[in-house]
Design a binder for these strands. Structure first.
Lengths: 125, 125, 125, 125
DNA sequence: GTGGTCTAGACCACC
DNA sequence: GTGGTCTAGACCACA
């Protein structure tokens, strides 16, 4: 999980996105413990303050909950997590299609490109 | 062409990307004139200095050339523009696939989602 | 280090040259810290933005590296700095000889002039 | 005499310097005719306005004089031209030595470098 | 009117 | 306190 951050966007936002993805992908389970601020700071080689800010924001979003003394957990609201996953996917797809169409790619070309690279489109044929 | 910028990334980088896309998509033709700094500034409702910085960077990249007092043009190096378009597309595809796989989507699901939204994959067959 | 800038060339270019020289002459050591933007701005009595532009350019050249929030350093690539010194010297020599020859000075006269002023040529012989 | 101008200093100043040098070096003789604005503009591929400005400045300096209808001539004040030549040489030498010393070169090294490149110093030995 | 530079002053993310 | 970005407004050289 060595990550290099885009120096042009706030690190705490990129951390938030990473954690959202981990939760949406099920790497962090609903109700499961989130690594401590210190652990995350070491893991991602960033300042603990930055981790702190990211986690606080995610808490505000309702994705994380803190337990007095026992650190933070992912929300156990499974429905919320499903919504998150769908929302993140929608964002990606919208952005991707928007950008590719802006570049002048047609649906047919998009299919070809995706097929070339990852075999998408001839999956189970 | 009303655009709203992502407040979390420098505007000049977003301007650069917009212009790269316009050039790659053929909206700005090789050898064609680029709107003046002042025009772009009013069009995108940003400060002329910000436009200036974006254009200067693109010039350093070789996408634009300036003619002393006669404004800027897109490079007439068509090959360079083709490379740019391919590179931009590759970036989008890589990023998209990376994010979607990180969210736990499989190739098959990806295909379905794309098909749902834009009919990719069942084009004219 | 009071400097007066040539009003006919951009200040940021003159700043770049000053810093290049300081690095080449060893006044700024490889890997050593560069004064902050704000410090340089007051030292040279110019706007911080102007310093910023100069340093950003030098960074693009590879002479400087920035450490997120810990200021800038001279590259620790000693070879690069040696090359820089040689290049700067070459430029000066070429320019000097070109100008003096254009003024109709012969090699012999050049030698005499230099000898007169700084004793070059009769060093310790 | 194909010249490429430094884009970072006003062209008219560079033109002035070229003409000063030509006069100091004797390529343009005291009392001799100076090419017309149009001719110079073509020769140096610059705007006639720019040439005009350069010549007007040189006139103000006393290096050039205009004759009603017959164009411009170099001043016939030979002493003035000699002074000019000495002054230009002095500037070059001062600047050169200042820069090289700033780069940390010693007199001995300077001599070696000059000798290497143009044989200065072993002229008539 | 074009690009380019500079100043002044503000705000932000990060440490 | 550090680098980085942005705005607002001014001035200059050049065509």
């Amino acid at each position: 999980m060595r990550i290099e951050f885009d120096p042009n966007t706030p690190i705490y936002l990129q951390l938030m996105q990473l954690i959202r993805q981990a939760a949406a992908a099920g790497q962090l389970l609903p109700g499961g413990k989130v690594p401590s601020v210190r652990e995350l700071a070491v893991e991602y080689a960033v300042n603990p303050n930055t981790v702190q800010k990211a986690l606080a924001e995610l808490e505000r979003e309702g994705l994380l909950v803190t337990e007095r003394t026992a650190g933070r957990r992912i929300t156990d609201d499974v429905e919320k997590i499903n919504q998150l996953r769908a929302e993140l996917a929608r964002q990606q797809i919208d952005h991707f299609a928007g950008q590719m169409l802006a570049l002048g790619f047609e649906r047919k070309q998009l299919l070809e490109l995706l097929t070339e690279k990852w075999g998408i489109g001839n999956g189970h044929h």
